[in-house]
Each structure stands twice: as C-alpha cells, then as structure tokens.
C-alpha cells in the first residue's frame, strides 16, 4: 500500500476543503472494508485519506410520514437490525442480510456499499493497468469475463457489485450529496453513470463531494418487495446476478413494477422493458415469463458469461410470480 496522510474529519461542512480536485489527492473513508482493500491492490493511491467516522451524527435511521432517512455512516448491521427496515422495506432488509459476513457488515456503511468500487479482477490486480485505471485497454475483452457485464456496450465491462444499490433503486431512494457549494439531492436512478460517460468512476460524485444521507420514500399501500441473489457460495460472496423487486399488485393486476438487476451491468440495471410490460397486466405464469424475456431483451453477453442471462430471466419470473401471489 502506498503511504498517505490520515485526517479525522469533524464536520460535514469541513470535508470538501479536506478533499481535492482529483481522486489521487484525497478520498474519504467510511467503514474502510472496500477502500483498504483497494489501496492494498494499488487500485486507489490517494495522498490523503479523510476519515468520516469521526463526524458526529451521520449514523441514524429516522422514520417519518414521508419514509425513512438513513445517515451515510449507518452500518449495514444497524440497517439489518432496524425494525422499520425489516417490516416496511423487506427488499432492503433481504438485500443487506446477504451482503458479505457479520464482521464486514459491522464495519461497512450503507453509503460505502453503494459507492464501493468494482470487483473486476483486472481492476483489482496491480498487473493490469486497464482503462478504468487510466490505461489503454479493457482486459475483460478477450480475457476471462465470467463475472462481467451482460448489459451495456463498454468500453469497461464491470458489474456494479453492490447488493444494497439495486434494492434502494427499486424503492425510489434519493442520495443526499454535500459538496463545496452545499447540499444537493439526486435520485438513485440518476446517480450512477455508465462507462461511456466517465470510464474512471461509476457515479456522478466529484472528488470533493460526499454522500451524507440516503432517503427512501414510504412504499405505496399494496406494494410488496423482495430481493433475490444467486452466488457461487452460500456464505460470503458477491452476486452473479441479483434482483430487487418492488411491485404494487391489486386483485392480481400489476399497477406498478420496479425491477432492478444487480451483477449484470456497470450500474444497477433497471429492467425498464419488463416494468413496462407488466404495468396494467394481470399476472399469470406466462406473463411472468414474458416479463423475464423482456428484461433480457437487450442483453449482449460476453464469451464466458451467457449463463447470467438465464439467471436474470429466472429471477424476474420468480419474483413477479411470488409478489403477485
């Protein structure tokens, strides 16, 4: 790991001035479960690390009429154990319950989870100076791309590794950002960015901005949610494919479906075609299958990851049927 200086931030307002214009100047650290590994692998080489855990009051879960507000530094363990989350937002509760291990969830924060960097093995290896690290090529193209994206057209083929992000996106959550010019709010749907927009990053955050809160609107009545995740190992493992589904069903008819796939694209991937297909339709097995087909209509798998298309279809069918029953 390259050495760096370490600063304990004391207020949100102070943070932008401790950060710099480039990600190589300074980065913030929350739980450190992703960042420390990234620095060990020289994927992140900041000159300064700004610890956010020393800021008071960024660790909370508050409920009001509008919904739930979760402070950026709330740990995944605290999200998992919160009764409002488990009762009203099962899709988020279930997603967090299958993230990593108890010890990682004890350290990892909710904001850190949606901001974690890619797990592409070329990105995480010092030996591969790929596009995402400022290099000239993507090694997944023509390389081993078993765990890479089936949606999007490059030039980087990472998958977004977060399980919480698809769940939050399915719930219509908003990310609260603080920068040199103050606070701002961005819908999760507008927060993540595809590689063609900025190959080096996965979201709109600038080097001197931080996330302070994630707010989740109260789901409408008759709306139900669930999270499904397929992984190679039943204990700690990232998703091969995951699905966060939130659906409003009245008398067997789908009024609204929110379906977000994880592990398949550089960002949490909203299955818009499937959502559109389901709206206003009575749910039957055949229609759940059609929705599944619609979800993968635009898939363009790489040589080693065609299996993800089948998993994605199965998850969509399974969730649509389960939430309609």
């Amino acid at each position: 790991m390259r050495n760096f200086s370490y600063v304990n931030a004391t207020s949100i307002e102070q943070v932008p001035s401790l950060l710099g214009r480039s990600w190589d100047d300074a980065v913030v650290m929350a739980g450190g479960t992703d960042l420390v590994g990234e620095m060990k692998d020289y994927a992140a080489v900041p000159k300064r690390v700004v610890n956010l855990k020393s800021i008071e009051g960024l660790d909370y879960i508050r409920q009001d009429d509008a919904g739930l507000r979760i402070g950026a530094l709330t740990t995944l363990t605290d999200v998992l154990e919160n009764s409002a989350v488990s009762q009203e937002l099962p899709v988020l509760h279930q997603a967090v319950s299958v993230i990593a291990s108890p010890q990682i969830r004890n350290m990892a924060t909710l904001a850190g989870n949606i901001l974690q960097r890619p797990r592409c093995w070329y990105y995480r290896s010092e030996d591969f100076p790929c596009l995402k690290k400022g290099g000239a090529r993507c090694y997944a193209v023509g390389g081993v791309n078993t765990y890479h994206a089936i949606f999007g057209s490059g030039p980087s083929y990472i998958v977004h590794p977060s399980d919480a992000a698809p769940a939050l996106m399915a719930l219509g959550a908003t990310v609260h950002v603080h920068g040199p010019r103050g606070g701002d709010e961005v819908l999760m749907d507008d927060f993540f960015t595809m590689p063609e927009m900025n190959i080096r990053r996965e979201n709109i955050l600038r080097p001197n901005e931080i996330v302070t809160e994630i707010s989740i609107p109260k789901p409408e009545a008759n709306s139900k949610g669930m999270f499904l995740k397929v992984r190679e190992r039943e204990s700690i493992d990232f998703a091969l494919v995951s699905l966060a589904a939130q659906m409003t069903v009245v008398n067997g008819t789908c009024e609204r479906a929110s379906l977000v796939l994880g592990g398949v694209a550089p960002i949490p991937w909203r299955a818009v075609e499937a959502e559109d297909y389901l709206r206003g339709r009575r749910i039957t097995e055949a229609r759940a299958e059609s929705a599944a087909e619609a979800a993968v209509e635009d898939a363009a798998p790489m040589p080693h990851n065609g299996y993800k298309v089948e998993i994605a279809k199965n998850l969509v069918k399974q969730a649509v049927q389960a939430l309609a029953s």
Binding site: Y6, G32, V36, N51, Q103, I104, N106, M107
Partner: peptide, 18 residues
Amino acid sequence: NVIMDGRLVNSCCVLGVE
C-alpha cells in the same frame, strides 16, 4: 478477527490509526 468497541471486525480491513 478481533472485537473492537463491542463489535466483531476483520483487523486486516481496519487501519491501525482507527
């Protein structure tokens, strides 16, 4: 694994300064 302020953590993912 060590227990830090009552919570189980992986000490390889924690910085000494923390």
